[in-house]
């Protein structure tokens, strides 16, 4: 039986470890800087193999080299999160290289002898599905907050980087919008009828001491707010203590940007809106009635 591996290319990837088989020693493959490699040296990891990308080379350019190194151990299970492109690139190369099943949204795996039982979300997370597939398995897992304690005794072994046909030629970091560190965020969607009505939602955000954000169409298609204010898969991804979604349907694209929120509240006139399936609390009603009422109630203290 081969080894179990964890691929780490993002600081949150170590949170995938608790999704793997308990008591099975795991080898980590890290593509990133030294700090990332050292962050993977935690309890449950036997050894960390580490590729440090050359200047100007994206981590995913080393997917082939990382996959080749893992394949040499005849892997049984390789897991990563889908957070960063590089982890996905490694698992894609691996699955092709060893004929593994490649599943995403995985929350648990169970050793069932000559097969592995895999559980995870399917159909956008609206159902929990279980699969029974032969080993080896490549699993894109849902990250967990349950990160094991650091273990300084874990060996961090560098691997040589190889030449790459892919290079980053320019990199531009946007001015911080304030969303990343905000404790409270109010997001608004197409339930809002006009740009002028943004003031209504802005008033609520001010009263809450919250940052104002929006769905992709409000920034991209309508231009009502700057692009750095839209939340979603291709936009900002936030982890506030409170996220208040106003007039948002709850499209998967948007929800991916707010999954880290501690408490999500939806305000929508449609009780069947998808936002309520992702929320902890919700008010079913017209935002043009609810938002002023909420702002006034907060002002009263």
């Amino acid at each position: 039986m081969g080894e179990d591996w964890l691929v780490v290319t993002d600081s949150q990837d170590v949170g995938a470890l608790s999704r793997l088989l308990p008591d099975a020693p795991v080898t980590a493959m890290v593509i990133g800087d030294r700090a990332l490699a050292e962050s993977a040296a935690v309890a449950g990891v036997a050894v960390v193999h580490w590729i440090e990308p050359d200047e100007g080379v994206p981590a995913e350019a080393y997917a082939g080299a990382a996959a080749a190194s893992i394949l040499a151990s005849s892997p049984r299970l390789v897991a990563a999160t889908a957070l960063g492109p590089a982890s996905r690139a490694v698992l894609g190369a691996l699955a092709a290289g060893c004929g593994a099943t490649l599943l995403s949204g995985v929350t648990a795996v169970r050793d069932a002898g000559d097969r592995v039982e895999v559980t995870g979300g399917a159909a956008g997370g609206d159902v929990v599905a279980t699969y029974a597939v032969p080993w080896p398995l490549c699993a894109l897992v849902v990250p967990s907050d349950d990160v094991p304690a650091p273990d300084p005794s874990v060996l961090v072994a560098p691997l040589a980087a190889t030449d790459s046909p892919v290079r980053v030629t320019a990199r531009r970091v946007s001015q911080p919008s304030g969303l990343a560190d905000a404790a409270r965020v109010v997001g608004v969607g197409r339930g809002l009828r006009s740009k002028a009505d943004l003031d209504l939602v802005r008033g609520l955000a001010d009263r809450l001491g919250a940052e104002l954000a929006c769905s992709m169409p409000l920034a991209d298609d309508l231009g009502w707010l700057p692009r750095d204010r839209f939340l979603g898969r291709s936009g900002q991804q936030i982890s506030p203590r409170l996220y208040l979604a106003v007039g948002l349907s709850g499209a998967p694209q948007h929800l991916q940007g707010v999954r880290g929120a501690k408490v999500i509240v939806g305000i929508n006139s449609d009780p069947g809106a998808g936002i309520f399936r992702a929320s902890d609390y919700g008010i079913v009603g017209d935002l043009y009635e609810i938002v002023p009422a909420l702002t006034e109630a907060l002002a009263r203290g």
């Binding site: 995913e60 996905r88 690139a89 894609g92 092709a96 490649l102 599943l103 490549c138 892919v166």
Partner: peptide
């Protein structure tokens, strides 16, 4: 999320995702 990288893997090509 594994489709595009696995396609690159089966082709033996690099990929640029997202």
């Amino acid at each position: 999320p594994g489709l595009a990288p696995a396609l690159a893997g089966h082709l033996g090509w690099p990929c640029v995702l997202a």
